[in-house]
Nucleic acid binder design. Sequence first.
DNA 1: CAAAACTGAATGAACATTCATTTTTCTAAT
DNA 2: ATTAGAAAAATGAATGTTCATTCAGTTTTG
Lengths: 197, 197
Amino acid sequence: MVKLKKSIDKRNALMEATISLVNNNGFHAAPMSKIAKMANVSPATIYLYFENKQDLVNKVYLEVKSQFTSYAFENYDPKLPVEAGFEIIWRRIADFKLKETEEALFLAQCDNTPMISEDSRQKGLVHLQPLLDLWERGQKEGIIKPISPYLLYAYTINPLSFLMVMQNRGAFKIDEVDLEQAYRAAWNSISVPNRFK
Amino acid sequence: MVKLKKSIDKRNALMEATISLVNNNGFHAAPMSKIAKMANVSPATIYLYFENKQDLVNKVYLEVKSQFTSYAFENYDPKLPVEAGFEIIWRRIADFKLKETEEALFLAQCDNTPMISEDSRQKGLVHLQPLLDLWERGQKEGIIKPISPYLLYAYTINPLSFLMVMQNRGAFKIDEVDLEQAYRAAWNSISVPNRFK
DNA sequence: CAAAACTGAATGAACATTCATTTTTCTAAT
DNA sequence: ATTAGAAAAATGAATGTTCATTCAGTTTTG
């Protein structure tokens, strides 16, 4: 696509409309016509900014994923000790999932749809590297269990997605106490037990 | 719908076709016409067994969910001590998710689609009660942390879904060692730490 | 031969995408 | 500064496809 100086506002409105509609009732409930209407734009205009629906959704995905990782590492310093660094990142991720619900919910919707290409998923993961590096350092120092990063992710980050979705579905409400307990659970699951602490 | 003595074989074939097609590429890729073709049946025949697509999918969901819970509690005895009982259930669930991949994947697909009604979700949860009871008993005995069952689920069962999906996506392969580590992570996250054990 | 089960083709709605025009913005010559 | 007119943006309606569901008729079963 040739670089054009089209209105960035319209592009943003389209992306936000996409997020909002997908959140509301899944990809199923986000036809191009509705997206256009919500963004106050003609359906045909979408195709000036995006190649097609796949392209639109994947672009939104990458944009939101990037917001997510920026947020997660905002006040992380790789020179911090392992446990402190982990807690900072974990709490930022929790914040994002519980406060930026629109964005977090959209990402959760994307996790399971074939609308997102393998390529986009791969790209979306790249910016998570600082967390993987931290874990590796923790393992070298004998603080974090020597297990696959997939396991580390499954037991520390993924539960937050589940809790966020449940909270959004109205099943229950996460308060400060729950969050504290969730952090303890996450850390206990991946840290090397130390009975002499 | 009036009770008819229609062939149970056709009904089963339709359910299996649904699972297979949904797994292959999401609900998006499972049109009634394809489901019918895969079950060697006319599209019109589906409507002799199910009211409509929603009904079909929800019935399959409840059926598979029920298979899942039967499997999970197959050799569980509520009189077992808490930790032993938990380990038995956890390992059965892990087995189901990692060996009965067709069924487990289908359930994961269902977790995020608006095609499944709130009512069906509710019904699907009912048979999980023995696990909730076990957790409650563990909490009374001071063995399991006094935290919300949603947290307990998020940190012990949900990670298995994540790992299953990742394995199915080819991202990595769970071996015996991973499984052992996963169990330790799950138990460590919810059990009351005991430094004198 | 009647009731039940089943069928392929037809119907109509929803949707992504394109197209022929119109509207807006930009440029540069007066 | 103004404005002609070219380029860029935007549009609503049209197109063609896919799909769930229905219907009129056929086949199977008891």
